[in-house]
């Protein structure tokens, strides 16, 4: 199994074990979840930027923020993505900007869709995966986040969209990272959701809990530590590492 860099200082060191070298397992799917405002989007963006700066393309589906806002949020951390937008290393599906009224002009690699139109969203994901796959058969795929999808669709529909999305990116060899705010669906849906992923990362504002259930291994691996959100993004604190296996 190959792991890719997370881009989060301390994370790759934390996830080293007898079985793996640390980082995020390539071509796996990860759910990052936790209470509101605990750094999930920052984590996603940091992961995205690390990939881009390593020439790994990224398919970014944004349903919470429009693409301008995402770009601005990344700029706050000095993660400048303008060049990657221009040279089309990133393929951006903006599922929310249409809500703010203005007309959205599609570009080659920035396309609009709608959180309330899952069929269209999947068409764009289909085009997007092909687009990034053509550049590189390993790429990163972000979905930030499921929250707005849950606000605009019945719970079971979101699960179906998610399944279709995960199948699509996994097939193409993408490494998926999907954000979700804990507590915005009932516990049953939440459990079903978690069961769809190889790995889960939980952020609660102080602690980071990682659970990795890779099909290549017999046992589930757990890691935990504390983390801080700094001006340079999330940092996992190295003196609190715990490998609970």
């Amino acid at each position: 199994m190959i792991n890719i860099q997370s881009g989060i200082p301390g994370f790759d060191q934390l996830t080293v074990s007898e079985l793996t070298e640390g980082g995020i397992p390539e071509k796996s799917t990860t759910l990052i979840y936790g209470p509101p405002k605990t750094g999930k989007s920052i984590f996603c963006n940091q992961f995205t930027y690390n990939g881009l700066s390593n020439q790994e393309p990224c398919l970014y589906v944004s349903t919470d923020q429009g693409y301008k806002q995402v770009q601005r949020d990344m700029t706050d951390f000095q993660w400048l993505i303008q060049n990657y937008i221009q040279n089309q290393t990133i393929y951006f599906i903006d599922g929310i900007s249409h809500l703010s009224g203005g007309k959205f002009e599609n570009k080659n690699n920035i396309v609009s869709s709608s959180v309330s139109n899952p069929a269209d969203l999947m068409v764009k994901v289909g085009i997007g995966t092909r687009n990034v796959y053509k550049t590189s058969n390993h790429f990163r795929s972000i979905l930030d986040s499921l929250n707005t999808l849950f606000a605009f669709n019945p719970d079971q529909m979101v699960i179906k969209i998610l399944k279709a999305y995960l199948r699509r990116i996994t097939e193409a060899g993408g490494t998926g990272l999907i954000a979700y705010t804990e507590g915005i669906t009932d516990p049953k849906t939440e459990n079903e959701l978690k069961s769809l992923f190889n790995n889960t990362i939980r952020l609660d504002g102080q602690h980071i809990h990682i659970k990795s259930d890779h099909p290549d291994f017999d046992e589930v691996q757990y890691f935990e530590s504390t983390y801080t959100i700094t001006d340079n993004g999330i940092v996992v604190n190295e003196n609190n590492f715990k490998n609970i296996n």
Binding site: P35, P36, K37, D64, S145, N147, F150, A151, T181, E182, G183, I184, T185, D186
Partner: peptide, 15 residues
């Protein structure tokens, strides 16, 4: 209910 309250929190930048 708590679902709505959490959703509201998740939509904003500052709480």
């Amino acid at each position: 209910d708590s679902i709505i309250e959490t959703m509201s929190k998740s939509m904003v930048d500052n709480i």
